[in-house]
């Protein structure tokens, strides 16, 4: 949107108001995407928080040639992917138990309130392998093209199309199963 271009320009000039408006405009979209990708409220809040902090620090160096929303959503997807990999490594290293004890000790400030529908869909999507989940969500919910997703995931467009197709098939069988119940 043209308004976003103006906002970015103002943000790069150091406008606090522009940063405030970008935050207000996109925080819910980013949180929603992060929840579905991570299926964990606390991880989702961390991911979006980190994306916004890096964005705020990038005012002088930011070179944005496309759409602001796609850029922020891609940042969330990248961070969610890294977090997912880190969680997998932790699981294989058997650190989960120690982490869960540590997380019980913390009292983090809650940031978002999810609707029942979001919780339900986050659980459904979590049944898909991570790459398929990310591809389906980025294409259908974030409106990203396969080419853009391929670029962000560092794979070929055909691989992304394959992941999308398998993801839809899996989703269909999950939903059919739910329906039969």
């Amino acid at each position: 949107m043209l308004e976003d271009k103006v906002l970015i320009w103002k943000f790069k000039c150091g406008s606090r108001d522009a940063l405030y408006r970008i935050y207000e405009k996109y925080k819910k979209d980013l949180l929603r995407l992060a929840v579905i990708l991570s299926n964990n409220a606390s991880d989702a809040e961390d991911i979006v928080h980190d994306v916004f902090v890096s964005f705020a620090q990038s005012a002088e160096t930011l070179k944005l040639s496309g759409n602001l929303k796609s850029f922020l959503l891609t940042c969330v997807a990248n961070r969610a992917r890294n977090k997912n990999r880190a969680n997998q490594c932790r699981q294989t290293a058997g650190l989960d138990e120690a982490e869960s004890v540590a997380s019980q000790l913390k009292t983090p400030e809650q940031w978002m309130i999810q609707s029942e529908e979001l919780r339900r869909w986050s659980d459904i999507m979590a049944q898909l392998p991570y790459e398929q989940r990310e591809t389906v969500i980025l294409h259908l919910r974030a409106g990203m093209k396969f080419r853009q997703i391929a670029q962000s995931q560092g794979v070929s467009v055909n691989t992304v199309k394959g992941r999308y197709r398998y993801g839809l098939d899996k989703l269909r069988s999950i939903l059919d199963g739910e329906f039969e119940k």
Binding site: G14, R16, L19, Y20, Y23, K27, K28, L31, R32, V35, I36, H49, F52, V53, F55, A56, Q57, S58, A59, E60, E109, Q110, W111, M112, I113, Q114, S115, E117, L118, W121, V136, I137, L140, R141, L171
Partner: peptide, 29 residues
Amino acid sequence: VKNLDLDIDTIPQTDQAVLSELLDAQKQS
């Protein structure tokens, strides 16, 4: 999936805390 109405809300106090952190980060940078 496209038309899902996935409602989400944020808690104003945390919002304010995150926002002031962002504004500080912007200023410092």
